[in-house]
């Protein structure tokens, strides 16, 4: 070491809100990924008009319900954050449970819609692109469920207050991102067509 001296501190043993920061960065990357997917889809639609797309019957009602359910799950997720900040363990667990339940319902509706449309990979470019975008949404949804459940376990162990709420907030932030991504994909693929 040099002879120069500096004041010291005990070192960063804990990093408050670091998980929220890491999740925000993952959300930034995920947003870029989804923008790339949807942007690619829109560019190709502008260029080739997707032969074969007209044969697909789009189940509008279930798809609208997916959007509403996803938004409801997001709102309930923020209830979990609110409760965790106030150290309300019962409310927190109930809210996380309801959020996960709604997300599972969302997943079920997305899979049902895909099944109704008979999305068959490899049969047309439209099918391929929609399969890929929806596949990513499904994967991100499953990650959200696992993330929320892990945070629920921490809440069950009494890890609440500002730090516990920051962790739950991170998992809810991730779900918020999935909701926005799905709304954009739904609008670009099924509304604009």
């Amino acid at each position: 070491m040099s002879d120069a001296t500096m004041a010291t501190y005990p070192g960063a043993t804990t990093a408050p809100r670091s998980q929220l920061v890491a999740t925000a960065l993952a959300v930034a990357a995920g947003s870029s990924l989804m923008a790339g997917l949807i942007g690619f889809y829109m560019s190709r639609r502008h260029a080739v008009a997707f032969p074969g797309q007209d044969d697909v019957v789009i189940p509008n009602a279930p798809l609208v319900m997916t959007v509403l359910t996803a938004i409801m799950a997001s709102l309930v997720g923020h209830w979990a954050v609110w409760a965790a900040k106030r150290r309300e363990q019962g409310h927190t667990l109930l809210a996380i449970g309801a959020t996960v339940l709604l997300i599972v319902a969302f997943l079920n509706m997305v899979l049902f819609s895909m099944n109704e449309m008979d999305i068959a990979i490899g049969t047309s470019e439209w099918h391929n692109l929609v399969f890929t975008i929806t596949g990513y949404i499904i994967a991100l949804t499953i990650i959200s469920i696992v993330y929320l459940l892990l945070m629920g376990l921490r809440a069950l162990g009494g890890d609440l207050g500002d730090e516990g709420a920051a962790l739950i907030n991170a998992s809810v932030l991730f779900w918020d991102f999935v909701v926005v991504a799905w709304v954009c994909a739904w609008y670009a693929i099924y509304v604009v067509k």
Binding site: L33, G36, N128
Partner: peptide
């Protein structure tokens, strides 16, 4: 973080296209 995921998105489309459309 804002740029490379766009490439990952493209690679995903290319993979699905190449892997399954060739059938």
């Amino acid at each position: 973080l804002l740029t490379l995921p766009v490439l990952v998105a493209t690679l995903s489309f290319l993979y699905i296209d190449h892997r399954y459309s060739t059938r």
